[in-house]
Design a protein around this nucleic acid. Structure first.
Lengths: 150, 150
DNA sequence: GTCACTGCAAAAGGTTTGCAACGGA
DNA sequence: TCCGTTGCAAACCTTTTGCAGTGAC
């Protein structure tokens, strides 16, 4: 079972992103490096506001939004809806995943595959509904936070 | 299995909402009735913008937002994220549900219960993660739309 | 040297709020 | 009558866009 749940590796992420951008022939400008390094250091989901605020005035707001969009398109960043309904971003890896976000520390587990969605898909199929896509976010407490008291 | 998937009944909805508001001692004002009737007639998810536009200038924008919020708090309206990432609203019923939204006609099925989430929850538990909440939206084609060509 | 990228500032878009007037119960 | 509700308009906040200048390759 360990192959379907993966914790996003902190050290890896930034380097993998940079390697990917390089291999696509994208320019590794100062602002881009600043943003990627900052994101790589985040251990929990962050808001667009937090990102722009953290890098101001070194990096312009417009640039932040443009770079974030690009990373999202490429699958390095996921926009995750919180239980409260607002958006946050988390480092992720290209491919189809779902996210299990720790409510306390923000640690994000990637859940690969959608076996459970398949069950629901089958249920709905019996009602004539053909599932073609879905959005799933999970929230809870990671192992570390359960171990920590308070 | 038919007990876990329910199509939101059109005729019912408005009356149930009115009855609920009445029983809570809320005022059934003109603007509120207008909004509820309009929503009751919608067979597919609608945006806040569509709602405000449809009722303007009979009902002010501020009032629309305030009433929608109230219905949402009471569980009569759900804010559903689309695959494109923007929000739409659908009639729903109080309680915990998930929604299966037809990509073509917008018909919304309520999926009651979270059996499949439980599978995922168990999987994550084996990784030490304790799931406490989730967001799930399903998209696809309802039976009627599959039957219709084009 | 080129052209992708950036910053600035302004525009846009959507939601919320203040406040005086209104009108259900 | 009273107080919850409403409309208007302005404020707000976040994101996007236009455009001239910059700098990575």
């Amino acid at each position: 079972m360990s192959e379907v749940v993966v914790e996003v590796r902190v050290a890896d992420w930034g380097e993998r992103v940079l390697a990917a951008l390089r291999s696509e022939g994208q320019r590794l400008t100062g602002p881009r490096l600043t943003i990627i390094h900052w994101v790589a250091a985040q251990e929990r989901p962050f808001s667009a506001e937090a990102l722009t605020a953290a890098l101001a005035p070194a990096v312009g707001r417009a640039t932040v939004y443009r770079v974030v969009d690009r990373l999202r398109e490429r699958g390095w960043l996921a926009r995750v809806q919180t239980e409260r309904g607002d958006y946050t971003y988390v480092r992720t890896l290209p491919g189809h995943h779902h996210h299990a976000v720790c409510l306390r520390c923000g640690t994000t587990l990637l859940v690969e595959g959608c076996q459970t969605i398949e069950t629901l898909t089958a249920l709905l199929a019996r009602h004539g509904f053909r599932v073609q896509g879905h959005i799933l976010e999970l929230f809870g407490l990671c192992a570390r936070c359960q171990a920590t008291s308070s």
